[in-house]
Computed example of a mutant assay.
Amino acid sequence: MALPITDHIVAAVSKMVDDSQVEGYREPSHSDIEFYVSRAGLTDADPKAQGQTVGKAKRVRAILSWAIDNDQTAGGKLVESLIAKVRASGGFRDSSANFIGADVIARAVEAFDSEGYILSSDGALRPKNLESLMGRELTVALRDYARRAQKGSEDAALLSGTSKDLLEATAAHVIRTKYGSYPQQANFPALLGQAFIALEMATPEDPPSSTESPYRVMERGMYQSAVGVNRLRNKEGSGHGRPWVASLGVVEAEAAIELAGVIAGYMLDKLDNR
């Protein structure tokens, strides 16, 4: 799914790399920008390659503005690379010397939201509608949700742009990857069971053996835990409002979120290794 670029996004990303209004140096460097510009195939649009001396913000704005009219795909790749660099450099952490500022982040969040993307407060960028993704792109998106869930992020409990929760979406993705389609009307325990079988993971239907590997015992526990987490989900709506049943306490909700992340992450790792 190609990342769209607009004037709004160009302005937001340009501010993310700008360090002209702060004391000292802040990553990314001009050298970093040059590397990502070259990798995106946009060197010809780079003012620096034309002998001009410009600041980072003006440089990035010029390149991306050219890409809007001439090569949206390359421009989208550059935007993703720059955001990833800013994130890796601590740009989204307020304790970092490279912090880009709450106002800059808020403007970027708004810009991407208007184009159907979610930019989280920690710099993760993902499409709102995960159902438009398939294959490797969906694996990457689900893995990002799994990591956030493992850290207790409640917005990872129900996926944006889909009625599925993280575990259900992961199970469906596994089955579709393995067999080309998945049973959309299947209940969650059946869907999860099929995904576990496709990944050669143990389920409660597999008789325990005294000689089996301990990880098989762990996988049975994962299945039962995943079913329990799914039953705790608020089935009304699709992620708007509290995603858990009203009787669930904060401690239980945090455990459910983190469990979902661990199990989904394990399933995606198994999928990658098959």
Rank of each mutant, 00 (worst) to 15 (best):
G101M: 08
Q50D: 03
M267G: 05
E34V: 04
A146T: 03
V104T: 14
T43K: 07
Y266K: 14
R39I: 11
E137C: 00
L142E: 14
G239I: 04
R87N: 10
G237F: 15
A255Q: 09
G101N: 06
N98G: 12
T53I: 06
K178H: 01
A146P: 01
G91Y: 11
T177L: 01
A57R: 03
S89T: 12
P208V: 11
A172T: 05
R93N: 14
E110L: 15
G91N: 11
D19T: 01
I68W: 09
A2F: 06
L192S: 04
K151W: 00
K15Y: 03
G237V: 13
L199G: 05
D7R: 08
P243A: 02
V17Q: 15
Y179T: 05
S96H: 07
A97E: 12
D7C: 00
I118R: 15
K15M: 07
S213C: 02
V140T: 15
M16K: 08
G123A: 11
V17R: 14
L232H: 05
D269L: 03
V262G: 01
R61V: 07
I105G: 00
D206C: 00
Q72A: 13
N70M: 15
H240A: 13
V251C: 06
V22D: 05
E27I: 04
E219H: 05
R136L: 05
R220W: 10
R231E: 11
D113S: 07
S14M: 10
V245R: 06
Q150G: 12
P47E: 12
I63D: 04
R216I: 14
I263M: 03
G180P: 01
R107C: 13
Q150V: 02
I33E: 06
L133T: 03
A62P: 13
Y266Q: 10
E131F: 02
Q72C: 09
L142D: 14
G193E: 10
L82M: 10
S213D: 12
P214S: 06
L142W: 09
T6Y: 07
A12F: 01
K128I: 13
A195C: 07
I68R: 15
L119Y: 11
A264C: 00
D269H: 10
G116S: 13
L138K: 13
R143K: 09
A12M: 04
A226S: 14
Y223G: 00
P243E: 03
T43L: 04
D44F: 03
A88C: 08
S120D: 15
L159M: 06
S210D: 13
L167D: 06
E27V: 07
V86N: 12
F35K: 02
R231A: 13
K48R: 13
P189I: 03
A111Y: 12
T6L: 01
K270T: 10
P204Y: 04
E205A: 05
W244R: 01
R220I: 03
R233I: 15
V79D: 13
D272P: 04
L158W: 12
Q184L: 06
Q52T: 09
L42H: 08
V22E: 09
A84Y: 04
V22P: 00
S132E: 15
G75P: 13
D71Y: 05
V10C: 09
R231C: 10
A141Q: 08
I105A: 01
A74D: 09
A260E: 02
G91R: 08
P207L: 10
K56F: 02
A190L: 01
A84W: 05
N187R: 00
L125P: 02
L259C: 00
S95E: 14
S96K: 08
N273A: 04
S14H: 05
D165H: 14
